[in-house]
Amino acid sequence: MSLSTDRKIILITGASSGIGEATARLLAARGHHVALGARRTERLKALVEDIQETGGSAEYHGLDVTEAEDVRAFADAAHSRHGRIDVMINNAGVMPLSKLEALKVEEWNRMIDVNVRGLLHGIAAVLPLMQAQRHGQFVNVASIGAHAVSPTAAVYCATKYAAWAISEGLRQEVGGDIRVTTISPGVTESELADSISDPVGREEMRTYRQVAIPASAVAEAIAYAVGQPSEVDVSEIIVRPTASAG
Rank of each mutant, 00 (worst) to 15 (best):
K99L: 15
E101C: 08
E101V: 10
A102Y: 06
A102M: 07
A102C: 04
A102F: 03
L103E: 11
L103Q: 13
K104M: 10
V105W: 10
V105L: 13
V105K: 08
E106K: 13
E106P: 08
E106C: 02
E107A: 10
E107P: 01
E107T: 00
W108C: 01
R110P: 03
R110C: 02
R110K: 13
M111K: 03
M111N: 04
I112V: 14
I112G: 05
I112T: 06
D113H: 01
V114H: 02
V114D: 02
V114A: 02
N115Q: 04
V116N: 04
R117L: 11
R117C: 02
L119W: 04
L119F: 02
L120D: 03
H121W: 10
H121P: 11
H121K: 09
I123Q: 11
A124C: 05
A124H: 14
A125I: 12
A125H: 05
V126Q: 07
V126Y: 06
V126W: 06
L127K: 14
P128E: 10
P128G: 05
P128F: 08
P128L: 10
L129T: 13
L129H: 12
M130R: 05
M130E: 07
M130H: 12
Q131C: 09
A132S: 15
Q133H: 10
Q133K: 12
Q133T: 11
R134C: 07
G136Y: 03
G136A: 08
G136C: 05
G136I: 02
Q137N: 01
V139H: 07
N140P: 03
N140C: 10
A142F: 01
A142I: 03
A142G: 07
S143L: 04
S143N: 07
S143R: 06
G145R: 01
G145K: 00
G145Y: 00
A148K: 14
A148E: 12
A148P: 00
A148V: 13
V149E: 11
V149T: 15
P151Q: 14
P151I: 15
P151W: 08
T152S: 14
A153G: 15
A153H: 13
A154F: 12
V155M: 14
V155R: 10
Y156G: 11
C157P: 07
C157S: 15
A158R: 05
A158E: 06
T159S: 15
T159Y: 04
T159I: 06
T159E: 07
Y161F: 13
Y161H: 13
A163M: 13
A163C: 11
A163Q: 13
A163N: 12
W164N: 05
W164E: 08
W164Q: 09
I166D: 08
S167P: 00
S167E: 01
S167G: 12
E168A: 06
L170F: 00
L170Q: 02
R171S: 00
R171M: 01
R171L: 00
E173N: 08
V174R: 00
V174D: 03
G176R: 00
G176W: 00
D177Q: 07
D177E: 09
I178G: 06
I178S: 01
